[in-house]
Design a protein around this nucleic acid. Structure first.
Length: 218
DNA sequence: AGCGAGATGAGCT
DNA sequence: GCTCATCTCGCTG
């Protein structure tokens, strides 16, 4: 039931397969007091290392910022963007092969009240409930889920085999239809912008953006 | 229910 | 200076 994913899951060299297989996995980030806060992964994107124009490591640019992407699979890469947000990635493959999978959306499973609080959904009495504060917006995007799960630079480089953040298999998440499309927000990436490297759980309401799918599979 | 703008900072693609 | 693997609010009709 609560089986942590084996390290071999991340060490595979087929990053696209990992991005697909991450759909339906449970992402767990406990609080400091050990309370479980978790969500099912419903949207991912693959970033294929130094030959991928959309990847931070494109062209072999190895810097302090993306250093973790060069580590062995099974680590966590967190970066800061747009002056306000963090994004969570899973490092894949062997060392010195900077492939990652971006976690773009999860569906809340455990600790939903904690997520509401972190996202500012528990407004003062009398405050008007707006559409933007409905639960559907808790974790439906890469920046949102990092706020809800309290993910920031302090877990950059953590191992998924540790006790700060990890992934679990859940039987009830096995039956999933997968949609495939273009990655979001990387129009600068030339030909690579059109590649089918975004994966999401079909019709799941927590997927970040309604976009055309290139194909569907099981 | 869809668009435009502003927020905000680190690394220069 | 400008660009970003983004989000939210406020305006529209």
């Amino acid at each position: 039931m609560n089986a942590k994913l084996d390290q071999n899951f991340y060490l595979r060299t087929d990053t696209v397969a990992i991005a697909r297989d991450l759909l339906g996995k449970l992402l767990v980030v406990p609080t400091e007091t050990g309370e479980r806060v978790s969500g099912m992964i419903v949207e991912t994107e693959a970033y294929l290392g130094e030959t991928d124009r959309a990847a931070h490591s494109f062209g072999g640019r190895r810097t302090a910022r993306n250093e973790v992407t060069y580590w062995e699979g099974g680590h966590v890469y967190v970066f800061f963007i747009y002056g306000m947000y963090y994004q969570l990635n899973v490092v894949c493959g062997e060392a010195d092969s900077p492939h990652v999978v971006l976690i773009r959306a999860v569906e809340p499973v455990e600790g939903i009240e904690i997520m509401r609080e972190r996202r500012g959904f528990l407004s003062e009495p009398g405050a008007i409930a707006t559409w933007s504060r409905r639960d559907q917006n808790l974790t439906s995007g890469p920046g949102k889920l990092c706020i809800a799960l309290d993910i920031d630079r302090s877990i950059n480089g953590e191992e998924l085999s540790g006790n700060r953040i990890w992934l679990e298999d859940r039987k009830q998440f096995l039956d999933i239809e997968i949609s495939v499309g273009k990655r979001i927000g990387i129009d600068y990436a030339g030909d690579d912008a059109a590649r089918p490297l975004r994966f999401w759980v079909r019709d799941n309401p927590f997927v970040s953006k309604p976009r055309l799918e290139i194909s569907t599979e099981n």
